[in-house]
């Protein structure tokens, strides 16, 4: 492992920037993502920051069954995130459409059709700790030795 890579590994393991996007959820999952910010869970001790700005994000949390309005927008948000990046589906909605995936609804799940999803956290809604756990266990898998894996 090169010296540069080891520095990058150290920095990345202590700084994970999270952004979330709601593509047609019932709000329940968004609120649990927001509750994750609370001092009780203390996400900053793991170096996670929620900025909600795709330009500086590493992890994108997607909540909600997919509504047609997002067809072009979600892709463009995904493109704006700099490499290395990863998307996590939060809740049943982006995975299967949850209760909304019925005849007559306007939704079009799963989200994996539109952007690559690396991990899924099922639940309606999942607990904040579960979301946190997913972010923490996925981040090292993706960000460690990223450049070396590329070449």
């Amino acid at each position: 492992m090169s010296f540069l890579q080891s520095i990058k590994n150290t920095v990345r393991s202590k700084s994970i920037h999270v952004s979330y996007v709601n593509v047609g959820s019932c709000n329940g999952c968004d609120i649990e993502v927001l509750a994750m910010l609370a001092p009780r869970y203390d996400i900053e001790q793991y170096g996670i920051y929620v900025h909600n700005n795709p330009r500086e994000a590493d992890v994108l949390l997607v909540t909600g069954a997919f509504t047609p309005q997002w067809e072009d927008k979600l892709k463009s948000i995904w493109d704006k995130i700099p490499e290395p990046k990863v998307a996590i589906a939060i809740g049943n909605c982006p995975i299967s459409g949850c209760v909304f995936n019925r005849r007559g609804a306007y939704v079009d799940p799963p989200v994996a059709k539109h952007i690559p999803i690396a991990a899924e956290v099922p639940g309606c809604p999942p607990r904040p700790t579960e979301i946190l756990n997913a972010v923490l266990s996925l981040a090292p898998l993706v960000f460690k030795d990223y450049e070396e894996k590329q070449s």
């Binding site: 509504t67 949850c98 209760v99 909304f100 007559g104 609804a105 306007y106």
Partner: peptide, 24 residues
């Protein structure tokens, strides 16, 4: 951006299902 058409899904369903849809 989040229009899911819940009222449309609810029509014609038994109340046991509508109860859970209403919550969501």
């Amino acid at each position: 951006y989040v229009k899911k058409g819940i009222e449309r899904i609810m029509r014609g369903r038994p109340w046991q299902e509508v109860m859970f849809l209403a919550e969501r």
